[in-house]
Nucleic acid binder design. Structure first.
Lengths: 130, 130
DNA sequence: CCTTAGGGGTAGGGTTCT
DNA sequence: TAGAACCCTACCCCTAAG
């Protein structure tokens, strides 16, 4: 017994998606404060939004169940902290403000990243030419 | 994915604690430069030390990981539990010769003022039975 | 300019519950 | 076993104050 694990309602999911379309993925706190969504998402925290988006996204893509995706590079420790990726080929070539679509699904080819935060760049693994 | 999340090793945590005992909490830069710890903490910045200490401290209370504060206000649904108090005064009613060890708070006595964050100023004094 | 304090916030590995 | 919901931790940003 204990925390009932509040399931997300379709309304909440819709609000989350709309919020992402409006503010961008990663702007959890902003979405939450937007009066347009706060009425529906008032029970959720910014972290909840982030987690929900992750759960929605990860699967939709066929990227395997989250855990498998990148569970390969754990156990790191005595490495140098010298990384700080230079975001070189990061964005396709525009500001990181224009989000695309807020659909966790699809995204096979042609769909760029959903939300590219300013500092934690994208994963350079995805090389999209053109 | 620049920084893979450098998980703090037990050695680093120990060095941090020792450094605090030796120089006092808040003397991050000093601790970092102390040859006694620099070998272990050379990957960390003074800010990292500060943040780490904050994380350690906040937890030791059972006051949640920061976000919990507000969660307590919300979550007015069918809650009831949701409180497990991480460790807090954990080992109090068990053996009569353990305790102590490494919770950032508590500890007690010692050298300079082991800084106790304002937030978690609550006592939680360790009860050294004996 | 540099450091610290502390309040924000986010990402992502991990855990728990269903 | 998987997926969903939630937790924990590392780290970043920013501002005020020294």
């Amino acid at each position: 017994m204990g925390a009932p694990k509040q399931k997300w309602t379709p309304e909440e999911e819709a609000a989350l998606r709309s919020g992402i379309v409006k503010h961008g993925a990663g702007k959890w706190r902003t979405i939450l404060k937007d009066p347009e969504f706060s009425g529906v998402l008032y029970l959720r925290s910014n972290v909840d939004l982030k987690d929900k988006w992750r759960n929605m996204s990860v699967m939709a893509n066929g990227w395997g169940s989250r855990e498998k995706a990148r569970l390969a590079l754990k156990r790191m420790q005595p490495i140098s902290k010298q990384d700080e990726n230079p975001m070189a080929l990061s964005n396709i070539g525009q500001s990181d403000e224009e989000i695309v679509d807020a659909k966790p699904l699809a995204v096979s080819t042609g769909s760029p990243q959903i939300g590219v935060p300013k500092r934690s760049m994208i994963r350079l693994d995805i090389v999209l030419i053109s």
